[in-house]
């Protein structure tokens, strides 16, 4: 069995906010090792618990996503103690740098499929979608969880809406509209509208609820 320490000899692909990603290989196949690094600012008990839970959970939910029809990396190996997942390496470009309206629609489709299957991704940002040829792959299920609640779906959608409006400001309206068309096709128009209403409500709540004392 391959030692997880061996994978760390690979080149660092990315030092993300959550985890470090290393280029590696798994028995000859190009692979990615995702290690949730300890945070010095978090209390050790809290830190260990968060990392372990998120590691196991991410691997599980990443596989579940495939059943829903969403492309995600294939999981090769999980080590909860080291908080490491070794998974399929997906080449291509992040949508953050290669955004098109067609891709936005596809992102909406993926979000719709997940939500319809009761999965909330939890971190829908354009840097978590990779375009690989004609394929779109969704990464980072680290904050994903199961829920049927409209409120949770709304929080999910709100994040990508915020990402469009802050990092992709110039094409915000068109990008989000394309996203919504893909989303509504999977969720059904009525459900999608309910979710969007909820998004608007969260945004409103942000404005009014702060001054309850």
């Amino acid at each position: 069995m391959q030692q997880s320490t061996q994978t760390r000899q690979g080149q660092v692909l990315r030092r993300g906010a959550e985890a470090d990603i290393y280029l590696s290989d798994w028995y000859g196949k190009p692979a990615v090792s995702k290690v949730r690094t300890p945070r010095a600012y978090r209390h050790k008990l809290l830190d260990d618990q968060i990392r372990r839970y998120r590691t196991i959970h991410e691997a599980q939910i990443m596989s579940q996503a495939k059943l829903a029809g969403v492309r995600s990396p294939f999981v090769y190996f999980v080590d909860p103690v080291a908080a490491e997942i070794i998974m399929e390496f997906v080449p291509g470009r992040s949508v953050k740098d290669a955004i098109t309206l067609q891709v936005c629609k596809m992102m909406g489709t993926y979000a719709g499929r997940l939500h319809a299957a009761g999965i909330i991704h939890g971190d829908l940002t354009t840097s978590n979608f990779i375009v690989y040829g004609r394929r779109l792959v969704l990464l980072d299920f680290g904050l994903a969880y199961y829920s049927e609640r409209t409120e949770d779906m709304a929080v999910d959608i709100r994040l990508i809406k915020e990402v469009f409006s802050s990092a992709h400001v110039q094409i915000f309206k068109k990008a989000f509209d394309s996203f919504v068309s893909g989303y509504a096709a999977e969720m059904g128009k009525r459900k999608a509208e309910k979710v969007l209403e909820n998004v608007a409500e969260i945004e409103r709540r942000g404005r009014y609820a702060r001054f309850q004392v």
Binding site: L46, D123, L124, T125, L143, V155, R158, L159, E162
Partner: peptide, 8 residues
């Protein structure tokens, strides 16, 4: 409870 939902 430690609750982070995306960036929120």
């Amino acid at each position: 409870p430690y609750v982070v939902k995306g960036n929120d």
